[in-house]
Design a protein around this nucleic acid. Structure first.
Lengths: 167, 167
DNA sequence: AATCGCCATGTTATACTATAACAAACCGAA
DNA sequence: TTCGGTTTGTTATAGTATAACATGGCGATT
């Protein structure tokens, strides 16, 4: 997964990212007979405008600007749908949402979040999951869902003066 | 750490848990020349009344009942102090707080959270951290802080009828 | 093409979580 | 005993999320 997620690569072709995410979303919804309505598509597009997790209330002004109702339920409903379809994930420690780079199949997600540039990338959590499973099974605990959110500094931001890896 | 945290053992001597946590807290604060004031001690005690993470607003009524001011800043200040001293941790995915079973030294924390009984136990995150470090270093990412919160069913709750491991 | 029923959206209100800002009281060190 | 910093009181507000009900649109069936 890592190598598919260009979130920390400052000069990747981000237009391509967005277009690809949106077209994948359309395809998936068509396959699943789910309706990617204009509001839902716009919210997904807004979320993909960069690789920084977005708060629900940050998205509202753009909805209003596009002529939609912009009361909170509107955005939360769209986000709920997008989460159900695996198109976005919520990052609990930030109360924020980010686009999923590989929504084709359900998967455990985990994130590296840069406190310098605010970008986040989705991790391959298979190794983390193995470690967690082992600890859990020692206690007879059956895992249903994992929240793995790591804050730190991406490579670029480590080389910026003034940045330290404090959370 | 696991074997020190009896959180999922239904019949452990919980009075002992609480007393031990409170007396450890007093010792640590004395050593560190920090003031474990009556409010702070009460909040810590309330948090230790069971092994279920508590929301800030759940704690307020007990503060009021004990004759203290119970406006939100009171509880958040106490929680802030307790977190700084490592005596409690915040669980981001629940917006809730739980007592730390080994506050003597700073450490990475992770939790197993049972969706059946609402209890949570602190994990030994060393193996998880190794896995995360490896993934992170492949991207040149420098870790500052990890949020690891796993929801599922504890051993006891798996044997209760009607419980499934859904998050 | 009309109808029916469901899904999506609009709208109002409110719950829940957390912090800002300033005043007053307390406590401990000099 | 006084001074200065920490803790607490108090009021207000910011930020996040959902309940509940009304309205409207869309698509499947006829």
């Amino acid at each position: 997964m890592n190598r598919e997620d260009p979130g920390f690569e400052a000069n990747h072709n981000h237009d391509h990212c967005m277009e690809s995410a949106l077209s994948t979303a359309k395809d998936l919804c068509r396959e699943r007979k789910q309706r990617l309505t204009p509001i839902r598509e716009l919210v997904l597009k807004l979320i993909w405008e960069n690789h920084q997790p977005m708060g629900a209330y940050e998205l509202l002004p753009a909805l209003a600007a596009a002529g939609f109702n912009s009361a909170p339920p509107t955005i939360y409903r769209a986000l709920e749908f997008l989460q159900e379809q695996g198109l976005v994930h919520r990052i609990a420690s930030l109360n924020a949402f980010i686009g999923c780079p590989h929504p084709e199949s359900p998967h455990r997600s985990g994130f590296l979040i840069c406190s310098g540039c605010q970008r986040a990338v989705e991790l391959d959590t298979a190794p983390v999951h193995r470690a967690l499973s082992e600890s859990a099974s020692e206690l007879g605990f059956k895992i249903a869902h994992e929240t793995v959110e790591v804050v730190g500094l991406c490579a670029d931001c480590q080389s910026q003066p003034g940045e330290t890896a404090d959370a």
